[in-house]
């Protein structure tokens, strides 16, 4: 293989096909669901204050699928915890439908990487947890739970306990549980991070299908570039130390998405651009490992 052909010239990630362009024009007319204004979070530590997030500003539109990506230590998790109301900002604010977020609530569902299903409840009871606590009747919430469980494809397991489920099935249950509350926004904190590659791809496809059919806005944290490009309308790239918004990228990859798109030029261009943002070429360490040859000189593997 010649060096020229191995590096094909990729298009600019900002070049959108007419169809995608037209879609984003409609997209920008949608109302804002979530607004993050001048958000900052400083942690007090024994070595003095540590700034996790600084002056973060962005909007999420209605029924947008947004991925947040960034190097480790960029405050992705802090950001999503503040959005969920599990942590608080030290400056700025979060507005949901124009109203400030002051604590956790059923209007912001969350799916965690560690599943966090209630082990003492069956799949069905887990999904019924939110609506029942909100005062919905048993019969009503059971009927709704069956609907959501069916949507994530777990009808056969509605009476199983979490310990009987695989990782993917647990995360499907967690998604159904969050959706059963019909939240304004679904926050997902690296939900597929613990799954094997094949299950992860199935989950991504299922999630896109659900998102297409259900009235829900998704903010999805990941550290997987392909996952971000494959799922998103827009990708929020954060910098680390302190966590700041680097760029809000509009994905040029057309919808509906499928696995063939993973080798399309616009997909690769977007991925490469994010790669450069997160790991700038100058920051990469290219020092080779100091390895002494310990095999026979003739004993070569290549």
């Amino acid at each position: 293989m010649s060096p020229e052909s191995s590096v094909t010239k990729l298009p600019d990630y900002r070049e959108q096909s007419p169809k995608v362009k037209e879609r984003f024009e409609r997209f920008h007319k949608r109302p804002v669901v979530l607004e993050v204004k001048n958000l900052g979070r400083v942690f007090e530590s024994s070595n003095g204050p540590v700034t996790a997030l600084e002056d973060v500003n962005f909007n999420i539109k209605r029924r947008e699928f947004n991925c947040v990506i960034g190097p480790s230590g960029c405050g992705k998790s802090t950001l999503i915890r503040i959005l969920a109301g599990l942590d608080y900002p030290t400056s700025g604010q979060v507005l949901l439908d124009g109203k400030p977020v002051l604590g956790p609530g059923a209007d912001r569902g969350m799916v965690f990487q560690g599943y966090t299903l209630f082990p003492w409840l069956t799949v069905k009871r887990n999904v019924m947890f939110g609506p029942m606590n909100a005062g919905e009747s048993e019969t009503e919430s059971e009927r709704n739970a069956r609907f959501w469980i069916d949507m994530v494809g777990l009808s056969k397991f509605e009476n199983a306990y979490p310990y009987q489920l695989s990782g993917g099935m647990k995360q499907r249950t967690a998604i159904a549980r969050a959706l059963a509350n019909q939240p304004r926004i679904l926050l997902m904190d690296e939900p597929f991070g613990a799954l094997d590659a094949q299950t992860r791809f199935q989950m991504q496809t299922s999630l896109l299908e659900i998102w297409r059919n259900v009235e829900v806005t998704i903010l999805f944290i990941t550290h997987d570039l392909e996952e971000a490009v494959f799922l998103s309308d827009r990708i929020l790239v954060l910098d680390a130390h302190p966590g700041r918004v680097n760029e809000m990228i509009e994905s040029p990859v057309p919808r509906p998405r499928n696995d063939e798109q993973c080798v399309h030029p616009e997909f690769l261009a977007t991925k490469q651009h994010i790669e450069h943002l997160i790991h700038p070429p100058e920051s990469r360490s290219d020092t080779p490992l100091r390895i002494t040859r310990m095999t026979d000189p003739d004993d070569t593997v290549f």
């Binding site: 956790p104 966090t116 947890f129």
Partner: peptide, 17 residues
């Protein structure tokens, strides 16, 4: 596991719940 409490809060559980 504290994450169970956090999950319950994001599902709208009150302090009593």
């Amino acid at each position: 596991d504290n994450s169970l409490l956090e999950a319950a809060q994001t599902l709208g559980a009150s302090q009593k719940q």
